[in-house]
Design a protein around this nucleic acid. Structure first.
Length: 411
RNA sequence: CGGGGAUUGGCGCAGUGGUAGCGCGCACGGUUCGGGACCGUGAGGCCGGCAGUUCAAAUCUGCCAUCCCCGACCA
């Protein structure tokens, strides 16, 4: 992508009332645009990051045997009345009436999945079902905050699993925990498995994946050794108590919830008659669980964790492009190595490159923009580099001069 | 929903009663050319909205809206 053609430019100063690092940096870098409080456009750079995250999740979901689908966002009131959530979840749900029919915008999909299951499942032979999708969630938050960490409209991956027994559900639940650990590790989020409450989803206990960061809105109580963590809202354990594995006292910290998993049991399937016939010919309610990861929130959380005073420092796995190529021209110079040629070569090799080809822009400004955008590798072609190319990592100071071939080999 | 702060050009700001200005950005011309260069010219704002006070309102008063932060609530 030629930077000169990219829609959405960097800006020098963030809107003054933004406080959250993710809001300031994503806005300044041209990753997002705010339509209103809690509603953001993902500009091209932001969308690419989100798509990288989406692909990581997709791969790990598929590894667990789950299948990708896409469910609707416009729901009839009737389906929500079946579980009583039209009323009990009224506060978070956007509900409206049109031509005498009432609708809701989706804030989750348990009821929709239950409807699918009762229509498409009849026997224990049809189970388990593991389906997931990536889509928008609408939630009427009392208060939106912290840039894209808490909006009223956001992207989420939600996975639903349906089983013949509690044992089978629990077994898969553990598989998803492992998949989630791999997902967060791949996007370089240090997410801690944490005990939590279920909100409008279940009265039972659930798990969240929490990333410790000062700007987080949740508070967790955890053992640094990793043997215990709980959301402060459900924890009866006091800070300072010794941990089991001898890692010292429990600590309290601010954290961002980036994922959650709910073992829902048979509550929904009983209410909605999502039944299957077992070996003995009896009708039984299916065991059900749901699992979410906030995509847009993950983008924000990564920025909260991975940035410095100059800008974002994207992990390689989610960076919008792999390399940021900069051309610095000196019109008086005899030497004319061509950044255009380097760009063409890298593209031919399948390397994702953002090429700052702008003319009449100073070197300093291009460097500053590269630091702000935060692509992991910066390449510079200039009079100084002769027939070589300067290679620099975003999170390191040192530079190296390499040939195009040497650079291609590094990918 | 309660409390606090804010709202003047795309962004950041100044402007305490007399009809709006600066920096950045943008356009054009020229000089520069490895860490946000410089000179010149120019475009761009019914000062968040509505009402009121006044000869006169960005400025004073009231109501409303929007945004940010804290809290309550929530994945």
């Amino acid at each position: 992508m030629r930077y000169s053609k990219l829609f959405g430019k960097t800006i020098k100063e963030a809107p003054k009332d933004e406080v959250a690092a993710n809001a300031k940096l994503l806005l300044r870098g041209g990753f997002i645009d705010k339509l209103m409080a809690g509603s953001y456009t993902l500009l091209h750079l932001g969308r690419r990051v989100e798509q990288k995250i989406e692909q990581i999740i997709r791969e790990e979901m598929n590894t667990t045997g789950a299948q990708e689908v896409l469910m609707p966002l416009l729901h009839p009131k009737e389906i929500w009345n079946e579980t009583g959530r039209w009323d009990s979840a009224r506060e978070v749900m956007y509900q409206f009436k049109k031509n005498d029919k009432e609708y809701a915008l989706s804030f989750t999909h348990e009821e929709i999945v239950m409807d699918l299951v009762r229509k498409h499942i009849s026997s224990y032979k049809d189970l388990p079902v593991k389906i997931y999708h990536f889509s928008t969630k609408f939630r009427d938050e009392k208060r939106v905050k912290s840039g894209i960490l808490r909006g009223r409209e956001f992207l989420m991956k939600d996975l639903y699993s349906v089983h013949v027994s509690e044992e089978d559900m629990t077994k898969y639940y553990q598989e998803v925990i492992e998949a989630y650990k791999r997902i967060f590790k791949r996007m370089e989020l240090d997410a801690i498995l944490t005990q939590a409450a279920g909100g409008v989803f279940t009265k039972g206990s659930t798990h969240e994946f929490q990333v410790i960061v000062d700007s987080g809105e949740d508070e967790i109580v955890y053992c640094p050794g990793g043997d215990f963590s709980a959301n402060a809202e459900v924890s009866s354990v006091k800070e300072g108590k010794q941990c089991d594995l001898g890692h010292g006292p429990l600590k309290k910290a601010k954290a961002i919830e980036v994922g959650n998993i709910f073992p829902l049991g048979t509550y929904y399937s009983e209410k909605m008659k999502a039944l299957f016939t077992d070996h003995s010919g009896q009708k039984k309610p299916a065991w059900f669980a749901s699992y979410g990861i906030g995509l847009t929130r993950a983008v924000g959380a990564i920025v909260e964790v991975h940035h410095d005073d100059k800008g974002i420092v994207w992990p390689e796995s989610v960076a919008p492009y792999s390399v940021h190529l900069i051309e610095i021209r000196n019109p008086k110079s005899e030497i004319r190595n061509s950044a255009d040629e380097v760009y063409a070569r890298l593209q031919k090799e399948g390397i994702e490159v953002l090429y700052d080809d702008r003319e009449d822009i100073s070197a300093g400004e291009k460097f500053a923009d590269a630091d702000l955008i935060g692509i992991p590798i910066r390449l510079v072609v200039s009079e100084k580099t002769q027939d070589k190319i300067e290679w620099k990592k975003r999170n390191e100071q040192k530079t190296q001069l390499l040939s195009v071939d040497a650079i291609v080999k590094r990918f």
